[in-house]
Design a protein around this nucleic acid. Structure first.
Lengths: 122, 122
DNA sequence: CCCTTGCCTAGATGTTCTTCGAAGCAAGAC
DNA sequence: GTCTTGCTTCGAAGAACATCTAGGCAAGGG
């Protein structure tokens, strides 16, 4: 990771949600959305994401033991998800709790909606 | 790409489609699906995908000029999408035509469906 | 106050990705 | 048969990524 600044995506800035099966994306929108998919493009992060998404919120102390990876590595993956704008974290006392950001989730789902794409469904 | 064997995903083998906001993914399913997201995690590939998805099929000769990249580079990105199982190609005479594989598309959309996730929607 | 626990950050290392130029192969034109 | 066009594959260079160990800060218990 070293000196690499993930942009901390502002999801409100995204030209929201026209399914990609309906209209080609502008380069700008693609540049904004691609990092979201990239963040989900790792098995560990995908599992972390689904673990967090399947409950209202999740403690890191419950996430870490689910993997054969070190604490720092899990922390790193969580940081990637956080900086992609897919999750939010909050420290309460000793523990840190993670929660999904539903608007990011919704946007990705909308982009992949195929129901409105008669052409590609051929 | 050198000596790296992308597995050419068999989408029928995937434990299909329970939204990740409902139930945590098994490690096996995550390992199968993550490469799909990874393939979409590049702005060029995302645009290629949306260009192909927005019409019944698309000629490479129409895809390449939309980018400031060389022919071989576009060909490489198309290969990544193809080996991820997201698109199919077919040579007809002089030109090669690309088409989306709707089942892969549908699966990703289903995984990101948030409508069935009251918990995470809080 | 000191120690323990929980999590994050920094630095280092090996692997993977992106991109290009060069070359190969397939289909059609002359 | 030979040439041109379109797309892919090969090989290499540079950047980015995943993972680990080591160290640091915050919160709580004795």
């Amino acid at each position: 990771m070293s000196k690499q600044e993930l942009p901390v995506v502002d999801l409100n800035a995204v030209a929201c949600c026209s399914p990609i099966a309906v209209r080609p994306m502008d380069p700008e929108q693609a540049a904004v959305v691609a990092p979201l998919f990239k963040a989900l493009g790792d098995p560990v992060r995908l599992r972390l994401m689904s673990m967090i998404a399947s409950v209202p919120e999740m403690c890191v102390c419950d996430l870490t033991p689910a993997f054969d990876l070190s604490g720092p590595t899990i922390s790193h993956h969580l940081k990637v998800l956080r900086e992609a704008g897919l999750v939010d974290s909050e420290r309460r006392g000793t523990w840190v709790w993670y929660r999904v950001k539903p608007e990011a989730f919704r946007q990705l789902g909308a982009l992949l909606d195929i129901s409105a794409a008669p052409a590609a469904a051929a």
